[in-house]
Write a protein that binds this DNA or RNA. Structure first.
Length: 630
DNA sequence: TTAGGGTTAG
């Protein structure tokens, strides 16, 4: 068929036969069709035999706007004698591809066999990148040999990729040696990059101390080095370290930039350090750092995880644009705070705005339903996710649903779902159901689940504790003792419960019966006062929450020293009257702490916001925002 | 043509 009816503006004026104009046409070709037409034309006119033009066709097809590797490969295979540039282009394209980096190595070895071409400083980085991705250390070492033989060992790009190759393959000594050698000729820029890559490698291998040592020994650090430490620490949950590097950076006079803020905010969020989070937000505004959708989603998440959901919503509304992640942040935030209906409203607004929800957005929506007892809604949203959006539920989605059914007391259904879902249950989901069984006193299902949990978990202390708590709540002290003995034998420990509160920008952390705080004496006096006032207000300790076989008086004492109570006592003595207290706890709040905190909020006229492992509780004037549904 | 970034069930 003649193609005059599909002529594009690009081809309206046919190219002349001179190479430069074809090359410039290729460079501005926008659609795959433009490219294919130019390609066909080049072949028809014989211009494709010009290696420069052929190379440009290839480059246009695999890099930048087109990124069609299969098409690029066919272009390459048509070349009678690809030049070095073309080899490099295709090797790079494969090395950067998600599914076939290994093909880059195959091509590299084919290139070595060609008589007229030799790898150069542009070939090695891609080939080494491919080795790093597929952890091909032997190939990597051989390529290193070629690098030396051909004299590219001093090239900054080649060197960085060599170091990264060794680091990704876990050969840290080789990586370290290369970096040290490069430090002898301190061309700062390049040396800093090499050190950053080395640090990244140590983090990837979980060798955190080594990473820190390299960082501390760096004479010159760039802002990227600082940001890298902050983000890596935050990613592996070393939250305080992340924040301490952030502060040290400031002390040493290195200015925070956009990436610094985006990197440190998740750590602040998880710690619940509201004051610091507010400082970061103010810093962005004062320094004209644009709060775009990326920084915005980090801020929205920070405000909601730090207890200020209204501010989170406010920041969200002011963002210049929204994407699935900003929506996830605000929906997940509302869910955490138990504001299910608003979470659902936001979800509807998102759909109305034409944004396609991701599976993460649905985790937020389902979590909202779970924490508000909206069972029918939860089911229908899972259905919507599968049928309308074609998303496959992950274990997290089933986790929300099992939790939702369990909290609502629909334990048989929860168990049925857990046993029949198409993904393998993990210890998280078993524990969620086990916690519901304990709460609703269902020993039968609890035992089923416990048995299955024990089959697959051997070193998760929390699972054993949950099981022992289930027995304890049923008064089955014999089995409690058995589980505890087993824990001792297997040497598994549970996460110690701890709570923390930020006062004047400093985080104060407490564990159960904690006497280590410098103001410990005042804190315990306050705890005594609190207990007296609670008793005056008619509070009776709920000793069923103490899951040890000890006498009642001791049980009361054990409750009295729960870490969240200590944190609240400290908050009360170290802030002025009326100040809202923000407490974060790493486990779920216990029933006794929940009911006494309600009273404390009334007695002392304080709003107390507690974030526990699963959600927020806003205590105010004797009531909690969770409506006892947690 | 090399280094750093946001959301995710309990």
């Amino acid at each position: 068929m003649h193609n005059s009816n599909i002529s594009t503006p690009l081809l309206a004026s046919p190219p002349t036969s001179s190479s430069p104009s074809v090359i410039s046409l290729l460079k501005i070709s926008k659609t795959p069709r433009d490219l294919r037409q130019l390609h066909a034309l080049a072949i028809k006119t014989g211009l494709f035999r010009d290696p420069l033009i052929a190379a440009e066709v290839l480059r246009s097809s695999v890099l930048f706007k087109h990124r069609d590797l299969r098409y690029g490969r066919s272009v390459f295979d048509q070349m009678p004698e690809p030049n070095c540039f073309s080899w490099n282009t295709l090797i790079r394209a494969y090395a950067e591809s998600d599914d076939s980096p290994f093909e880059a190595l195959v091509l590299f070895s084919r290139m070595l066999l060609c008589e007229n071409t030799q790898p150069n400083q542009f070939t090695f980085p891609s080939a080494l990148k491919a080795c790093a991705l597929v952890e091909a250390i032997e190939a990597g070492k051989q390529i290193h040999g070629h690098v030396i033989k051909l004299g590219w060992g001093g090239d900054a790009f080649v060197l960085t990729n060599l170091v990264r190759m060794y680091a990704f393959c876990g050969f840290m000594e080789d990586a370290q040696k290369l970096v040290e050698k490069s430090s002898l000729f301190p061309d700062n820029e390049a040396s800093i990059v090499l050190h950053n890559i080395l640090i990244d490698g140590y983090f990837r291998l979980g060798m955190v101390e080594h990473a820190r040592k390299v960082f501390d020994r760096m004479e010159n650090k760039s802002v990227v080095s600082w940001n890298g430490m902050i983000s890596k620490y935050a990613q592996i949950g070393y939250l305080k370290e992340a924040i301490s590097v952030f502060r040290q950076m400031q002390l040493e006079g290195v200015k925070h930039n956009y990436v610094t803020l985006v990197s440190v905010l998740p750590a602040i969020a998880r710690l619940g350090a509201l004051e610091l989070g507010e400082w970061v937000h103010a810093y962005a505004e004062k320094n004209n750092i644009e709060v775009d959708d990326v920084l915005g989603s980090a801020l929205v998440d920070m405000y909601s995880k730090c207890g200020n959901i209204d501010k989170a919503v406010q920041v969200f509304e002011k963002l210049p644009k929204h994407n699935p992640i900003t929506w996830s942040s605000v929906i997940g935030g509302l869910a955490m705070h138990g504001r299910a209906n608003e979470a659902i409203d936001y979800f509807r607004r998102m759909e109305k705005d034409g944004v396609t929800p991701t599976d993460v957005v649905f985790i937020g929506v389902l979590n909202a339903c779970s924490h508000a007892g909206l069972v029918a809604e939860g089911r229908s949203y899972l259905d919507r996710m599968v049928k309308l959006y074609g998303l496959s539920p992950r274990i997290e989605h089933y986790g929300c649903l099992v939790d939702m059914l369990g909290r609502a007391g629909l334990l048989e259904e929860a168990e049925e779902l857990l046993l029949n879902m198409p993904v393998k249950p993990d210890h998280v989901i078993y524990k969620a159901l086990l916690a519901s069984c304990k709460r609703h006193g269902n020993a039968k299902i609890g035992m089923h689940i416990a048995n299955r949990l024990m089959e697959q978990v051997s070193d998760d202390g929390d699972s054993y504790v949950l099981l022992s708590n289930l027995f304890a709540s049923l008064g089955d002290w014999g089995n409690v003792a058995k589980v505890r003995l087993l824990m001792k034998k297997l040497d598994v420990r549970k996460d110690p419960g701890c709570s923390w509160i930020t006062v004047n920008g400093k985080i104060h952390e407490f564990v159960v019966e904690d006497y280590s705080h410098p103001q410990s004496k005042e804190i315990y006096l306050m705890l005594e006062e609190m207990t007296d006032k609670l008793q005056e207000a008619g509070y009776v300790p709920d000793t069923t929450q103490v899951l040890l076989n000890i006498d009642e008086e001791k049980k009361e004492m054990a409750l009295f020293y729960h870490s969240e109570k200590i944190a609240i006592a400290f908050g009360l003595i170290s802030t002025s009257p009326g100040t809202t207290l923000h407490v974060v706890k790493n486990l779920r709040i216990c029933g006794d702490c929940h009911s006494s905190t309600k009273l404390i909020s009334k007695i002392y006229g304080r709003k107390i916001i507690v974030r526990d492992r699963s959600r927020f509780h806003h205590f105010d004037n004797g009531v909690c925002s969770c409506n006892e549904y947690w």
